[in-house]
Simulated scan of single mutants.
Amino acid sequence: MTAPQPTIVATSGGHRVGARARVLFDSLVHHAVDLSGVHGRRPRVLYLGTAVGDAEHVTARMHEAARYAGFDLTPLALFPMPNVEDVEATLLAHDVVWVMGGSVANLLAVWRVHGLEGALRRAWRAGVVLSGVSAGSICWFQGGATDSYGPRLRPVTDALGFLPYGNGVHYDSDGGRRPLIHRLVADGTLPTTHCTDDGVGLVYRGTELVEAVTEIPGKGAYVVTREGDRAVEERVEPRRLPPPPD
């Protein structure tokens, strides 16, 4: 099964601490799987941990989270070399791609070296749901605000551009992100920018934002647009997702 339209779920969430596991998949990951339309078998999730250097301990936690969720998870590692012969065929064999947060600048550089930009675009058009958290959200847009270059937040403007907007993540938990996003939109560095509080995700069909969803009550999504030489922010109220099955 594949999604009926090209689908992206861009989030500032998706993980939670479990009673018996360090990390479990929260409602946003389950929603991405639901949007893929898979039924009658275990969902196939491709995990991309490039932004954390394919750290083995993080991959192990993702495997554990997938086991609890009832998903079949395959890590696509690029360090020290790709762990599969055919990257594009591997992408197309899965229902959902989940991209871990970390350094979006490093992620983009490594993906381009290995030709993932084109392969991911073709998988998206074929109905594989693209999703992720933080760096795994920004990567699908024109760019956003990042700490990839050091503790001081800076703009990144050369992301994949599947979606023709900027992206702001961790909008409520990192005090520097909102003012920087506003400056970048006001001066034209970023186009209209879609932002998420922690626990919130944005669902796109093609390049259209169709819904904001959340796993945490009271959180918000935001659209920041340019009016003259200033940025104007509008809150988008997200729909509360049901909790994932135990």
Rank of each mutant, 00 (worst) to 15 (best):
L202G: 11
D34E: 15
S173H: 07
A93M: 04
P82K: 05
N106P: 00
E234D: 15
T2Q: 13
W140C: 04
G37E: 03
R22G: 05
T192H: 14
M100E: 15
D172Y: 02
L163H: 06
A69H: 07
G70S: 09
V23A: 01
V17P: 00
P82R: 07
G40L: 06
V224E: 14
L184K: 07
M1V: 07
L209T: 10
E233W: 09
S131Q: 04
T196F: 00
V58Y: 15
A231I: 04
H182T: 14
V33T: 10
L160C: 08
W111L: 02
P155C: 04
L160K: 09
L92M: 13
Y204S: 06
V169P: 03
N83Y: 11
S173P: 06
P238H: 06
G18L: 03
K219Q: 15
A221N: 12
G143Q: 06
D26Y: 05
R121D: 12
D174G: 00
E64K: 10
A3P: 09
R154G: 01
A221E: 08
L73W: 08
R177A: 01
P82Q: 05
C139N: 08
V52G: 07
Y47H: 11
E117G: 14
A119T: 02
L202F: 04
G18T: 05
G218N: 12
G199D: 03
L153I: 11
P191S: 12
A123C: 05
L24P: 12
I8K: 02
A3V: 01
L91W: 05
T193S: 13
L35N: 09
T11N: 07
S131H: 01
S137G: 14
D246H: 15
H31A: 11
A66I: 05
V200R: 10
H31K: 10
T214M: 12
G127C: 09
N106A: 08
D187S: 13
G102Y: 00
W98K: 05
A109W: 06
V236Y: 10
A212G: 12
L107I: 00
G40V: 03
V200A: 12
R121I: 00
V23M: 14
R239Y: 10
G40P: 11
P191Y: 13
H170N: 11
D229H: 13
C195M: 06
A123H: 04
R44A: 14
R177T: 01
Q5S: 12
T74I: 00
T207Q: 15
G150Q: 03
T59P: 03
